[in-house]
């Protein structure tokens, strides 16, 4: 169950960070603009699914956040933080979802211990337009993801 890609969106849908981890560079026909369109689609989907989920869930439940969305070929794990950031992690070949719990924990870690440490605590942090590329978020995230059993 390889990790395909990870996106981080702010609460208005702007992409703060994106990285593709998939190995096969053979079908690299997607240019930057297409990928950016695709990310808008991902954000819009998660946004609307949350609304649908909120109306279908029992009213006693306060947590309406979408945890994962499984389609035929991939699963999107999503973590929404209290500040409205959305982390979306695409995993391919994940039909049986054996690692669902561990992946969710890992995403929580990616926010609590990597995003907060590297981006939010950076002295140059700007809450509206954080410059993620200038921090060591990517290095720390890569090191963490590679250490996970479900990375490949």
């Amino acid at each position: 169950m390889p990790v395909h890609s990870l996106h981080v969106f702010d609460r208005k849908g702007k992409t703060l960070f994106t990285k593709c981890y998939a190995q096969n560079k053979a079908n690299k026909v997607d240019d930057g603009e297409q990928l950016s369109e695709k990310r808008k689609l991902v954000f819009g989907m998660l946004f609307s699914l949350k609304e649908v989920a909120a109306s279908l869930s029992p009213s006693s439940i306060k947590d309406n956040g979408v945890h994962s969305v499984q389609t035929g070929a991939s699963t999107c794990y999503c973590l929404e933080t209290a500040s409205g950031l959305r982390f979306a992690l695409y995993i391919t070949d994940d039909a049986d979802k054996t690692h669902a719990r561990s992946i969710r924990k890992a995403m929580q870690h990616a926010y609590n211990d990597i995003w907060i440490q590297s981006v939010v605590r950076s002295p140059l942090y700007n809450p509206v337009t954080p410059n993620v590329q200038a921090t060591n978020f990517e290095t720390n995230l890569d090191a963490f993801l590679v250490s996970q059993s479900w990375y490949r």
């Binding site: 869930s57 306060k62 947590d63 389609t71 991939s74």
Partner: peptide, 23 residues
């Protein structure tokens, strides 16, 4: 939106199969 699709293009039954939320 998924980066990979099921083979078969438009004829495949691709789409949401399962969604897990808090509730």
């Amino acid at each position: 939106a998924s980066p990979v699709r099921l083979p078969g293009g438009k004829n495949s039954n691709d789409g949401i199969e399962e969604m897990v939320t808090g509730g």
